[in-house]
Nucleic acid binder design. Structure first.
Lengths: 189, 189
DNA sequence: CAAAAATAGGACTCTAATGTCTCAAAGTCA
DNA sequence: TGACTTTGAGACATTAGAGTCCTATTTTTG
C-alpha cells in the first residue's frame, strides 16, 4: 500500500464521507456541493480524485467496505440464524447513510467490476445467512434468497429515509425494520 | 381543457411514457435519450416541453395519475382490508415502471407542490386502507401507517427491480411482494 | 387531392459543470 | 525555526447538455 500521510488520508476520508452523504440525498449534486460538504476547496477534491467517475467509484468502494466491516462485526455466521439476522439488520441500519447511497446506484454490479472490488471471502455473505436460516427452518423456504436480500436492502433504505423525513425517530428505525422484515404487517397472535 | 388534436395528444403520451421508462432506470438520462426512446426528434420533445423541469414534472403528474387510476380500479374501500390490500399490491406491481420512476424522485412532495397536483378526493388513499385494516384487527396496529405505506412502495419497487434484473419472472413478482408484505420472512405455521 | 398540421433533422447559442493550473497562505513535522 | 507538505482561492479552457430556431418532409385530415 502507498504509505499516505496522516493528513492526506484524513482529507481523503472526509471527501469520501461527504460524497456518500451528499449523493445519497441527491445523485445530481455537483462536485462543488461535495467539496463544500467536506469542508474542502474544489481544487483539493480534484487533487484526490481527477474524475467525477473516479470519485464516485471510490465512494462506492469505500461505502461497501464500510458495510462489509459492519457485517463482519455482526458475526452473522454465529448462533441461530434469526438472531444473526437481527444483528445484521441493526448493523445495516447503523450504516444507513452509506447504504442509501449504494442503494441509489442503478447498477452497482457494473460499477464494482470497474472498481475491481471483490468481497472479503472471510466475511460471510447475506445470502449464506438466508440459506442457513431456511435450512434451519426459521426462514420461509418459499422465498428466493436473492429476493429476501433485496427486501433487506429495501427495508433498510426505507428506514433510513423515514428517519430523514422525521417519520421515525432514530431509535425506532431498527425496530420497525426488524419487525416488518420478520413478521410482515399482519396481526401477530 | 385545451382541445388537443389526436396526433398531438398521442405524441405527448409517448414522450411522457418514454420519460418515465428511461428516467426510472437512469435519473441522469439526457433529453436526447428520452426523445430516442419515444421515437421522436429532440426538437419535437422541446416543442411539447420547453424545460427539462417541465417535462419531469409532467411525467411525475402523469405517472401519479396513472397510479391513482390503478388504485381506483382496485377499489380498496371495498371488502375486507386484507383482501383490499392484496388488490392494491397487485395494482401497484402492475404499475411497476411508473412506480419505480416515482420512487426514485428524492422529494416527490416538493415537486408535487410545484406541479399543483392534488389527489382525487374520490379515490381512497393507502393510509386510509392501512388504518382501516388496523381497526379491523387484520393489520399490526403497532406499526405506524406512514411506515407501512413506505414499505408498500419499497417492496413494490424491489419487485419491479427484481423483474428487471431477471431474478423474478413477471408472474412471480406480485406473489413475492404480497407474501413478504403480509407475513415477512419467518417460517409460517 | 390539396391544405393544414406536425415532425425530422439539422445548425446554432448559451450555460453550468468539469477539469487543469498557478501561487500565496497555512499547516505539519524534524 | 526552517524545510516540507498540503491547502485555499481563483483564473482559465473545455465540454456536454439544454434550449432556440429554421427548412424540407411527412402525415393527417377535410
Amino acid at each position: 500500500m502507498s504509505p499516505e500521510s496522516g493528513t492526506r488520508s484524513r482529507t481523503r476520508r472526509a471527501i469520501l464521507a461527504a460524497a456518500a452523504a451528499v449523493l445519497a440525498r441527491d445523485r445530481a449534486a455537483t462536485l462543488a456541493d461535495i467539496a463544500d460538504a467536506a469542508d474542502v476547496a474544489r481544487s483539493t477534491l480534484h487533487r484526490y480524485f481527477t474524475d467525477r467517475d473516479e470519485l464516485v467509484r471510490a465512494a462506492i468502494v469505500d461505502s461497501l467496505s464500510m458495510v462489509e466491516e459492519q457485517q463482519k462485526a455482526a458475526a452473522i455466521d454465529q448462533g441461530p440464524a434469526d438472531e444473526a439476522m437481527r444483528r445484521l439488520l441493526v448493523a445495516m441500519v447503523d450504516a444507513g447513510e452509506r447504504l442509501a447511497f449504494l442503494f441509489a446506484d442503478p447498477d452497482l454490479a457494473k460499477t464494482l467490476d470497474q472498481a475491481k472490488w471483490d468481497p472479503d471471502p472471510a466475511v460471510p455473505g447475506t445470502l449464506d445467512l438466508i440459506r442457513r436460516g431456511q435450512a434451519e427452518g426459521v426462514f420461509d423456504p418459499g422465498q428466493k434468497p436473492e429476493w429476501v436480500q433485496r427486501v433487506i436492502w429495501a427495508l433498510t433504505y426505507s428506514g433510513w429515509e423515514a428517519g430523514e423525513k422525521g417519520e421515525l425517530a432514530r431509535h425506532e428505525i431498527a425496530g420497525a425494520v426488524i419487525r416488518t422484515f420478520e413478521a410482515g404487517t399482519l396481526t401477530r397472535p
